[in-house]
Structures are given as C-alpha cells and as structure tokens.
C-alpha cells in the first residue's frame, strides 16, 4: 500500500470511518513513516482549527424576508374545529400583522370611533322656531256672517 493510500485511510480515520483492524494496521505504518505521521498531525490540526471557527452571522432581515415570502406562497388555512373566536383572532392577527390582543383593541377603538361618528351624523339638528298662525276661520266667518248679514 502506498503512502497516498495510507493517507486516504488517515482521512477516514479522522472521520471515524476506518474499521478497527485497518486502524491498527495504519498506526503500525505511521510508527515507521514520518510523511504519514506529519500528514496525520497536520490534518488533525487543520480539522481542529476549522471546527472551532466562527461562522458568518445570520442576517436578521432575512427572517423578515422569509416570513413575508412564506405568507405569500400559502394562504393560511383554518384548521378543522376552529372556534369563531379563534378564527377571528387568527384573521385579525394575520390581517393586521400584529398580536391578536393589539388587533382586537384596534378593532374596538375603530368601532367606538365609528359609533361616535354615527351619533354625530344622525343626531336631530336644532330646528328653527316657526310661529303657526291659525286663523280662526270658522269664528271669523261666523262673525262676518253676523256683521255682514250674509
């Protein structure tokens, strides 16, 4: 077996993928071969250093982007047996993109403002005073009859 083949075994050894008997044979070879010992030491050092390296941080705005895309690709389906309250809460939180309590508070506030506005519009307006003059037609006619002799 060549040193290149032995070093392929060293690579497998580091991954825990070398059978025990082959590993024993490999260690026997390494005790006699400086090149393979150096390869083993360097590869183990590289592996150790790489494993402890910090990775690039996940960009927070990507969460938002993915969340938006998920909502776009599949509309939310109401689960079976959902109560009206739960359904309303879900619809509100989805529609307003805010937690359900905040959405309900917003809705109530909107309703209150609507009622106030309606009362203002529909309330009776103050009317002008009209003096109704009722002519005493009958009496006038009677008096006229008396005076004119009709």
């Amino acid at each position: 077996m060549t040193c290149d083949e032995r070093q392929a075994e060293i690579s497998a050894l580091l991954d825990g993928a070398l059978p025990d008997d082959a590993a024993g044979d490999l260690f026997g070879h390494m005790s006699r071969c400086g090149a393979c010992r150096r390869f083993h030491a360097a590869t183990a050092a590289v592996r150790e250093a790489v494993r402890h390296e910090e990775t690039a941080p996940f960009p927070r705005e990507l969460d938002r982007r993915i969340g938006t895309e998920l909502r776009r690709v599949r509309p939310v389906q109401p689960p079976d047996g959902e109560s009206i309250v739960d359904r309303l809460r879900r619809m509100l939180s989805t529609a307003f993109r805010m937690p359900a309590p905040a959405a309900i508070a917003t809705l109530l506030l909107a309703l209150l403002l609507g009622v106030l506005a309606a009362r203002t519009v529909l309330a009776p307006q103050p009317q002008e005073r009209h003096t109704v003059v009722v002519f005493p037609t009958v009496e006038v006619a009677a008096s006229l009859r008396g005076t004119t002799g009709i």
Binding site: D63, I66, R74, V76, P78, P79, E82, R90, S93
Partner: peptide, 15 residues
C-alpha cells in the same frame, strides 16, 4: 429573539 415571530406568523393556525 424578535425575528422568529415573522416566521410564526406564517403559521397562524398554530401548526
């Protein structure tokens, strides 16, 4: 974590 709600919102049915 403030960003995960963006993901949760896509599953408002609780799944």
């Amino acid at each position: 974590m403030t960003s995960i709600p963006d993901i949760r919102l896509a599953f408002a049915d609780g799944s």
